[in-house]
């Protein structure tokens, strides 16, 4: 039986701007499973990023609940949410968002040092290993502006993983990258998932979507359809592509 790691119940999210209401998520019910590589897709304005940020405890909700390991994160206070983001969740952004005046290494260790129970030695070691694994150790003493976009994003992934989070959230992680770097980053995600990392990824990139073993399609703030796939294997890429494309076409993607 698959373990539910995030359980979304009757979720509503309404933005109000200058008195005008905009309901971005409508009565959504959804389960995210432990160990899954879940991809959320949808057209622009469908609410996919909003959903991601709500699940990642970075956006509050209007109605409904989000249970993480049985606890409703929508009821949690700010400090508890901070702890959640620090210890249980890792986040990767489209704009990468490394702190510009810290080196890649310093960016990676930042959340680690914020963890009260961590030691300098553990954090430094873990950072080194991650950067080595993501092949950016040789540039780890450079500033973000001194490395390529792909190297930045790989450092950002290392930062998201430094505290060994339960769930990795990624908002269009390849949106600012070229094709080559996109491939490298998605390979990393695939490998992480193979090693048991739960990943929740929002994308409009079809090629990125192929990496997931579960694709959820959202329109107008509600789940329209979903598709389950086997674990990603580059040997079966063509078939996988065909299956996913057919499904997306049926959804007028």
């Amino acid at each position: 039986m698959e373990k539910v790691i995030l359980d979304v119940k009757n979720l509503d999210k309404v933005y109000v701007s200058d008195g005008v209401k905009n309901q971005v998520i409508k009565n959504m019910n959804l389960e995210i499973y432990d160990g899954d590589f879940t991809v959320i897709m949808g057209p622009s304005g469908s609410g996919k990023s909003t959903l991601l940020y709500c699940l990642g405890a970075m956006e509050d909700v209007t109605e409904g609940s989000i249970l993480f390991q049985g606890e409703d994160i929508t009821k949690m206070k700010e400090n508890t949410l901070s702890d959640l983001r620090l210890k249980e969740f890792g986040f990767i952004f489209q704009q990468i968002h490394l702190i510009s005046n810290l080196t890649l290494f310093q960016n990676v260790i930042l959340p680690g040092l914020a963890l009260p129970e961590s030691t300098n030695k553990d954090i430094y070691e873990r950072a080194d290993n991650l950067l080595e694994k993501f092949q950016v150790k040789h540039v780890s003493q450079r500033l973000p502006s001194q490395v390529s976009g792909g190297e930045q994003q790989r450092a950002a992934i290392a930062r998201a993983l430094i505290n060994q989070p339960k769930v990795l959230f990624a908002d269009e992680p390849t949106g600012a990258l070229n094709q080559n770097n996109s491939e490298i980053v998605m390979d990393l995600f695939s490998e992480l998932n193979r090693n048991g990392q739960s990943i929740l990824l929002v994308t409009h990139d079809r090629r990125a979507a192929l990496r997931g073993n579960r694709i959820i399609y959202i329109i107008d703030g509600a789940v329209k359809s979903e598709m389950k796939l086997n674990s990603y294997d580059s040997a079966n890429l063509k078939d996988r592509e065909h299956t996913v494309n057919t499904w997306l076409s049926s959804l007028s993607w």
């Binding site: 400090n79 901070s82 702890d83 959340p111």
Partner: peptide, 16 residues
């Protein structure tokens, strides 16, 4: 403020 947003996103408490 974007840096503050990043720090909040990665789990820094407001007080920190």
């Amino acid at each position: 403020q974007i840096d503050f947003g990043i720090m909040k996103a990665i789990g820094f408490k407001n007080s920190v």
